[in-house]
C-alpha cells in the first residue's frame, strides 16, 4: 500500500499489535467501519482514543445504552418542547430548526473536518439496532423528513465500533464492516502495556506479577477471568502497599482486586491450596 507509512502506528499510551495497526489503516483508507470485538479490558474503546490522538483528529463518542434507538444518533425532533413553547407567545416557534437537534452521527456528518466516530458497545442496544443504521453508514447520509433535507457527510468519518459480544451483531451489518477480534494480550505484550502505565516499575516485580496473573487466569471454572484493567489495579495496589517480590510468589496479596466474585475467590482458594497441578493447566 505504501501510504501506511503515514497511517496509524499506535500511540504513546496505547500498544497496538501489528495486525491491528494494519487493519486500522486499511479501514481508514477504504472508509469502511471497523468492528472491534474482544474480552473486556482488551482496550477496544481506547483504540479509538488512540487513533484520534495519533492522527490528530477530533473524536466523537456515541455511548450506546439498552434504550438507545438508531434515530437518536441521527437527530431528535423535540416535539414536546415545541408544543410547550407554542402555548406561550414569547417564543418564536415558526423555525422548526430550533427544535431539531443532531445526534452524534449527525454531528460527525456535518463536521468540517474528518474525525473519528466511536460507537461504543453497540451490542448493548436492541438486537435490531445495527440494522437500522445500515443505510446511513453505507451512504454516509440521512434524510430529515421534517425539514425535507438531506444530511450528507462532508468527510467520511473514521468509524470505530466496539462490541462486547453480549449480543451477536446482524450479518447484514457485519458484511459491510471490517472485523477484528482483539485477543487477550500475551505475556510480552502485557509487559509492554504495563510499562506504559507504570514506567518506573521494577522489572522483577512486574514479571512475577504477570506470571501470577496468567496463572490465575488459567484456573479453570472462573466465572470472570481477571482482565488487563484488573491487573493494572493489582499492580497499583502492590506498589502502594510496598509488597516484596517474594511475597507475590508465595501468596497473593490483594486478591480482591483480581477476583471480584465470591464464588471465584472460593474456587481459586480451593485450587491453589489444593493438590498440586490438579485444577489448572501447566503453562510450559
Amino acid at each position: 500500500m505504501g501510504n501506511t507509512a503515514q497511517g496509524y502506528k499506535g500511540s504513546d499510551d496505547y500498544i497496538a499489535s501489528r495486525p491491528l495497526m494494519e487493519i486500522v489503516n486499511v479501514s481508514i483508507v477504504l472508509g469502511k467501519p471497523l468492528v472491534i470485538k474482544g474480552e473486556p479490558g482488551t482496550g477496544k474503546t481506547l483504540l479509538a482514543h488512540s487513533i484520534a490522538g495519533a492522527l490528530n483528529k477530533k473524536l466523537i463518542t456515541w455511548n450506546i445504552k439498552s434504550t438507545t434507538k438508531a434515530k437518536d444518533g441521527l437527530y431528535v425532533y423535540d416535539t414536546v418542547q415545541r408544543l410547550n413553547d407554542a402555548r406561550f407567545k414569547d417564543k418564536d416557534i415558526s423555525d422548526i430548526r430550533k427544535y431539531i437537534k443532531l445526534g452524534k452521527l449527525g454531528q460527525a456528518f456535518i463536521s468540517e473536518e474528518k474525525l473519528v466516530l466511536l460507537i461504543d458497545e453497540i451490542d448493548k442496544a436492541d438486537i435490531e439496532f445495527p440494522n437500522d443504521l445500515l443505510n446511513e453508514l453505507d451512504e454516509m447520509s440521512f434524510h430529515i423528513p421534517e425539514l425535507d433535507e438531506e444530511i450528507i457527510a462532508k468527510h467520511r468519518p473514521i468509524l470505530i465500533i466496539t462490541s462486547n459480544s453480549e449480543k451477536e451483531l446482524p450479518d447484514a451489518f457485519l458484511r459491510r464492516c471490517i472485523f477484528h477480534y482483539i485477543e487477550f494480550p500475551d505475556e510480552e505484550m502485557m509487559e509492554k502495556i504495563i510499562k506504559v502505565h507504570f514506567p518506573d516499575l521494577e522489572t522483577k516485580l512486574m514479571r512475577e506479577a504477570i506470571k501470577r496473573f496468567y496463572w490465575i487466569r488459567e484456573v479453570e471454572g472462573l466465572r470472570k477471568k481477571p482482565s488487563t484493567s484488573e491487573l493494572l489495579d493489582w499492580i497499583k495496589a502492590l506498589t502502594l502497599g510496598g509488597i516484596s517480590v517474594d511475597k507475590i510468589s508465595s501468596e497473593i496479596p490483594f486478591l480482591g482486586t483480581l477476583l471480584k466474585n465470591e464464588v471465584d475467590t472460593e474456587r481459586f482458594v480451593k485450587v491453589s491450596s489444593g493438590h498440586g497441578t490438579f485444577g489448572f493447566k501447566r503453562r510450559y
Partner: peptide, 24 residues
Amino acid sequence: YNGFFQSSINHLYYIGRAFLVKSE
C-alpha cells in the same frame, strides 16, 4: 488488487481475515 497486502502472507492472513470473517 489495490495492493493492501504487500504481497505478504502475514498481511493476507490478518487483513484477509478482517475482511472475510465476522465473528471469532
